[in-house]
Computed example of a mutant assay.
Amino acid sequence: MCSKRLGRIRPAMEALIEQRKFFGGVILVARHGEVLLHEAVGYRDQENKVPIEKDAVFSIFSMTKSFTGILTLNAIEAGQFALTTKVSEIIPEFSGGVREDITFYHLLTHTSGLPMTFTPIPGMYIDKLDEVIDAICKKVHSAALPGAEASYAPTVAHALMGEAVRRTDPLKRSFRQIMEETIIKPLGLKDTSVGLRADLRARHIKPQWLFDKGALQHLGHSDLGPDGAFEEEDAEMPWVGIASTVSDIFRFTEMLRRGGEYDGARILSPVTVERTRIDETPGMINQLYGRNAIARGWEPMPAYLSIGFSLRGDAICHHQFGTFTSPQTFGQHGQGSMLYWIDPKRDVTFVCLSHGVMIEGDNVERFQKLSDMAITSVI
């Protein structure tokens, strides 16, 4: 990769920060596993010009879904259940109506037909997994037939997957214990935790929205504010609840880039990782982000969803992974602020965690620009 071309990324980020598009962020670009760019840009406190640090701890929002998806695939490899297993077989309370036919394949590909809800019951606490599962089973029913459409699931799918992994665990561990002992500790993710671990609190950047998010709240039992769930040490939220750093997310992506293994820790089989690069939603659009695109006058992008990840695909459209990455590029975003992707053709990895949750359209344009700048540094 060309260092001069990579050097254009920081000024591009600084210009957006100067325009107050976001406050700051940490970015990393690597090729063949070698880190070629790792910089902290902007501020953790923009008003007082306090710079952001490379080891800043972020609430990674929906990037958590990648961890839960990998944990689910790991459980499938171990024979705890299958892609074709109906969720209601593992969670009997999740029965009644069309939802009884939803499988783990549907959950992993966002084709379950469940509604795009952020909170099963408005105003409820979301930091306790058992309470969220109880609310889902009592209140959340299908909006479409399983497999009929691609509707990105902000909460329900990964809450159900986390609970299924817990219920079928032969050691009867909690979701947190399973995640720590299966992924976090084996990969050496020292600054990553389910919930906000006490020793990470001083480096944590509290989420801050740059737009009016309306009634959306993330409430925790300690009543720490409208987004207090992200500050709960004991929170178990398999859809948004992990805290981490750019360096740790890079180690996680290295496991994926290397076919499921990193530093001697085998998390997935290469067979499974290869399968995650196949588009399972051909001909579909993403109902959630398609609506956002239409609102901005854009052509809705194809869904491009695999079992556990988003894919780049081959259409020229507004896309966080850029317009020049290869079609099999795969990764995951976190609401208006977080992104990683891996381009298996060019063997390039991109990780950026940022402070200041942007409105989604602005965020797509921001990451599309940075992703294109990163991938076109390959010479």
Rank of each mutant, 00 (worst) to 15 (best):
L256S: 04
D234P: 00
S247N: 14
D248C: 03
Y262M: 12
G259F: 07
D227Y: 10
R258K: 08
G260C: 01
D263L: 11
E233P: 05
I242S: 12
D248V: 02
R257P: 09
F230C: 01
P238V: 01
R251N: 12
E254M: 15
D263I: 00
G264T: 04
A229N: 02
S244Q: 09
I242C: 14
G260S: 04
I249F: 10
Y262C: 10
E261L: 11
A243I: 06
G241F: 01
P226R: 12
V246R: 06
E236L: 11
M255V: 01
A235Y: 05
V240A: 15
A265F: 04
D263Y: 06
A235K: 06
I249E: 07
G241T: 00
M237R: 08
D263P: 07
G264P: 08
G264L: 05
E233L: 07
R251H: 15
F250G: 04
T253A: 14
A243D: 10
G259P: 03
F252A: 00
G241H: 00
S247F: 06
G259H: 08
E254I: 04
E261D: 09
G259D: 05
E233G: 12
L256V: 03
V246Y: 05
G228N: 04
E254S: 13
G228P: 00
D248F: 05
G228H: 01
D227F: 15
S247E: 15
R257S: 15
T245W: 02
P238N: 02
A265I: 02
A243V: 13
D263A: 14
R257C: 11
F252D: 00
E236M: 15
G228W: 00
E231N: 05
E236V: 11
E233Y: 09
G264K: 08
E231M: 09
G228V: 00
Y262D: 07
R258T: 03
I249Y: 12
S247Y: 09
I242N: 10
D234E: 14
I249A: 13
G228C: 02
G225T: 02
D248W: 03
T245G: 10
T253V: 14
A229Q: 02
F252I: 01
E236N: 07
E236P: 09
P238W: 03
W239N: 11
M255I: 03
D248A: 05
D263V: 04
E232G: 08
G228Q: 00
F230D: 00
G241Q: 01
T245V: 06
G241E: 00
D227A: 09
R257N: 09
E231Y: 11
E231V: 04
T253H: 06
W239L: 09
E236S: 11
Y262V: 09
G225Y: 01
E233N: 10
G225A: 03
